[in-house]
Computed example of a mutant assay.
Amino acid sequence: MKWQRTLLIVFLCLCIIFKLQLAAYPAVNEIIQITLERTGGFAGITTTKIVNTANLPIDKANQLRQLIHNADFFNLPTNINSKPPHPDRFKYKIIVEKNGQRHTVVVNEEAVTRELQPLIKWVRDLEY
């Protein structure tokens, strides 16, 4: 009986700690949706990929959150273009929705920033 009481106390303590961690890191629970549309290229084919963190394993969802943060996505300009744009290159339209906030960035392939490139690659290559 004593071991059951000890086990219950340990369990309750873990529950409290877990809830405190979630409260301290609310981003773990926030739902983010990203849409990546790629147009252009030699064939002119359009592809669209939509990823929602609610449908991802926790580790993948956290990777996506970190990539969006690292790209400083919500502070990027709406259009990022190279001068002059090259024919037959890809153009990306990236839409991120988070906490009722929505931001769209359109970027030519040759103008993709060092910070934005890992996000595009991750979404493009994601299989789940």
Rank of each mutant, 00 (worst) to 15 (best):
L116R: 01
T46R: 09
T53H: 01
I95P: 01
H86Y: 15
T53Y: 03
P77W: 00
L64Q: 02
G100M: 07
L14Q: 13
F11H: 15
T46V: 10
D59F: 09
K49F: 04
N108M: 11
E109W: 07
V96S: 02
G100I: 06
L76M: 04
I95A: 07
G40L: 07
L7D: 12
W122E: 04
R89T: 07
Y128A: 13
P85I: 10
I31A: 13
I34M: 01
E97F: 04
P26W: 09
E127P: 06
M1C: 12
V123N: 02
V51I: 09
V106H: 03
N108E: 11
Q117L: 10
T48G: 05
I58M: 11
E109D: 08
Y25N: 08
N62A: 10
W122S: 01
N75P: 02
R89C: 07
F73V: 00
G41Q: 08
L119A: 02
E127W: 14
I9N: 13
L64F: 01
T46G: 07
L12E: 11
R38C: 06
Q66N: 05
K91R: 11
L116F: 05
R124Y: 12
Q21E: 14
M1N: 13
N62G: 06
V10C: 13
M1S: 13
N55D: 08
I80C: 02
R38I: 06
G44M: 08
Q66R: 03
V112T: 05
I120D: 00
E110D: 11
